[in-house]
Design a protein around this nucleic acid. Structure first.
Lengths: 243, 243
DNA sequence: AAGCAGCCACTGTGATCACAGTCTTTTTCT
DNA sequence: AGAAAAAGACTGTGATCACAGTGGCTGCTT
């Protein structure tokens, strides 16, 4: 990638990283959504994102369009884009669909998972626990996400995986906003251990139940937070310097 | 919309139809996927689509990118785009997810559906039956799709609806290829009537079972067709005349 | 006549420019 | 001083151009 004067290239410009600039932008923006960089209600503009990423507005346009289609971003009637605010109803729906689809994915994964993958899950869970105990909720959340995705990846479903990723993408900004504070302290990874045991036992039904319990636990923690959409603006646009 | 010389404007250029050109293109392409205009394996190019729709390649680029993200379109390593071929495994996955999500949507719809909407469903079902009996499988399939979406729309879920649409979008080209022939003759709308009755009775569980039976019936019809991806090309690119 | 090299049409991608809206801010008038 | 109006900055959108990579076709060479 070509460095441009006056820009801050955030994208790794390692040789031939992968694919087109638009794909890199898309991937980078997804990461930001999943890791809580963007806040619910925050307004994004094409040119600001482009300048921030050190690329022209063109690839950003397409990436942003895709994010809108996925529901990760919202287009207001004014044609301005903002990361959606969360309502209780919408969150309940998202968690309900997650429960159904991640349950299916977990059953499928349990039938084909390799011992090596179970070990990887244990490792990720340990990192999540460690971050949790040291109070780094942000990191704990990211590792929790990696745990779930590592599990579903074992199912090798090209149908389920993109849909589940889309669900996390939609819930990402709110989850980080709600759980990065001390409100997230109610969560512990108990159900992850139950899941791992079920995988070892080769018991798909129990594995599914463990994941459902985990999602229910997350739901309990999320539904009691006071961060739902109200009338006021939660995260005003962070304007960049001009001139 | 401005008519351009030498082009065939397919998009309705009624005054201020809705939104941007890109949205119209996106909507039009979705309709084509859902109505069997595109065949599995068919290769699409930006400039051909643009010429065909009577617009510049720019809005088509973004619309196509969104379709790729949704899984309706596939990008080959050559960076050419083709509508994905279907495999038995992939179809089974799609139908499995459909069963889960449309089951949830049906239960939700059953709880809030209005008598007027049930009447609308009966009307759509009648049209589907009529087309079916007159041998117009293409139209029967489209009406069947409208039946399902009218049902799920009653659930008013902004989470479920886009996902279900995405699933139909992915299966659309193959369904039309497989069922437009006499192979689709095994299907009848029996389960639709059972569903309508369950809606009248206000019995969500029975409504869900009726939809699941309907999807299973579709699955039986689809899985016996010989149209799955093989080595040979099923639908070579339809090239347009060149100057 | 068969094989290989070179050419040409065509692909998606990215940048730049122009334009019509919207929203804020400033200016002007009462 | 307050309200209305106009000017200006900034938004997403679309069109056009340039470019590198790919594929297939043509025509020369052996």
């Amino acid at each position: 990638m070509i460095r441009r004067v006056g820009a801050v290239p955030v994208l790794k410009d390692q040789a031939a990283q992968q694919g087109s600039v638009e794909e890199q932008v898309y991937s980078e923006l997804r990461d930001r959504f999943m890791s809580g960089v963007f806040l619910p209600g925050q307004v994004l503009t094409l040119r600001n994102l482009a300048a921030n990423l050190g690329v022209s507005p063109m690839p950003v346009r397409q990436a942003v369009r895709c994010l809108i289609v996925e529901g990760a971003l919202e287009m207001l009637p004014n044609r301005t884009m903002q990361v959606p605010r969360m309502t209780r109803d919408r969150l309940a729906e998202l968690l309900g669909v997650r429960r159904a689809l991640e349950g299916i994915a977990t059953e499928a994964a349990c039938r084909v998972v390799a011992p090596r993958q179970i070990l990887a899950l244990e490792k990720i869970h340990a990192m999540s626990r460690k971050a949790f105990e040291s109070g780094d909720m942000r990191r704990s959340l990211v590792m929790n996400q990696r745990f779930h995705f590592a599990l579903y990846e074992a199912a090798q479903s090209t149908v389920l995986m993109p849909i589940i990723q889309g669900l996390w993408l939609q819930a990402g900004p709110f989850m980080h906003l709600a759980l990065s504070s001390t409100a997230g302290m109610h969560w512990d990874g108990t159900h992850h251990l139950e899941l791992i045991q079920a995988l070892r036992d080769g018991d798909p039904t129990e594995a599914r139940l463990a994941i459902e319990r985990d999602i229910n636990k997350t739901a309990e923690a999320l539904l009691v937070t006071p961060h739902f959409a109200t009338g006021r603006v939660e995260a005003p646009e962070r304007r960049v310097a001009r001139g």
